[in-house]
């Protein structure tokens, strides 16, 4: 199975430009990057994809065993880079994908020039033995799984195409109708378990690729302490605190987010 079909890979932008690969996080799909893309389209070659189970990925390729760890998802990411023969990749990864990026960068350091980790967390669950604060208890994560179950049928039928409000970009809204953030509910449940219960803290110090950590204000999934922790553990990383609130700065504050990324890309390695 070609990863380009499996992961519904989309390639945009300037074919001659340096490569930016965007990895979406939990709860959404590659469409969530749309607001920041205009800032890169002229200068960069842009590669977007959906994790298996999300968006328009090929759900038939879902393998419970393979995707029971972050490694399975990281393997897909690496396969995409390999198939498209991407070099000197800057990998922009949101939320739970940030740790897939870490796994991938450790496995194939030669492939990646830089990492941009948007609202990353290496471990969502508090760890009393080390005093680490992830922000959640295991019961909280169980609660999330329950919440997913409660929305099972709604999720399975994708988002109802009833656009009542006026999106800021109408043409975008129409294009997205019905498919935006659709997900297979069973896979979403597995995905939540894998991503929210993984502990990747031990991996951080193995990363040799320079990284930018984008920390939001008031993000319940990645509190500031977590961003600080990631920055501290990633040798040679840069921490930028965004004014944007919530967990998705690339949606709520696309300009601030893309500017922070561009500034980092222009800075000397």
């Amino acid at each position: 199975m070609l990863s380009t079909l499996r992961n519904h890979v989309t390639v945009l932008g300037n074919p001659e430009g340096p490569v930016l690969v965007f990895a979406h996080g939990f709860g959404c799909d590659q469409n969530m990057w749309r607001r920041v893309l205009p800032a890169f389209e002229a200068s960069h070659r842009i590669v977007l994809f959906d994790h298996v189970g999300a968006g328009r990925s090929d759900v038939s390729t879902y393998d419970k065993q393979k995707y029971s760890t972050l490694d399975g998802y990281a393997a897909d990411l690496l396969q995409i880079c390999e198939e498209l023969d991407l070099q000197d990749v800057t990998l922009v990864a949101h939320s739970v994908s940030a740790m897939m990026a870490v796994v991938a960068a450790i496995a194939s350091p030669e492939r990646f020039a830089r990492l941009v980790l948007v609202a990353p967390s290496p471990c969502y669950v508090d760890d009393r033995s080390t005093g680490y604060v992830g922000g959640f208890s295991e019961e909280d994560i169980e609660g999330l799984l329950e919440s997913l179950d409660s929305n099972y049928f709604g999720w399975a039928s994708a988002m109802a195409p009833m656009v009542m409000g006026k999106p800021e970009e109408p043409q975008l809204g129409e294009e997205l109708t019905g498919s935006f953030c659709a997900a297979d509910p069973e896979i979403a449940s597995d995905f939540a378990r894998v991503t929210f219960l993984s502990d990747s803290r031990d991996l951080l110090h193995q990363v040799r690729t320079p990284a930018l950590v984008l920390q939001c204000s008031d993000d319940m999934l990645a509190p500031t302490e977590v961003g600080d922790y990631v920055h501290e553990q990633l040798a040679g990383s840069t921490l930028v605190r965004l004014a944007a609130t919530g967990h998705c700065p690339h949606i709520s504050a696309p300009d601030e987010t893309s500017e922070a990324i561009l500034r980092y890309l222009r800075s000397p390695g």
Partner: peptide, 25 residues
Amino acid sequence: IGDQVLYSTHCQPLLRMVGAVAEIA
């Protein structure tokens, strides 16, 4: 908390991008 996570990871992006969410449990 579970619903909060879902709201921030799923509903808020949808509201911003599509302008609506419907019948979220």
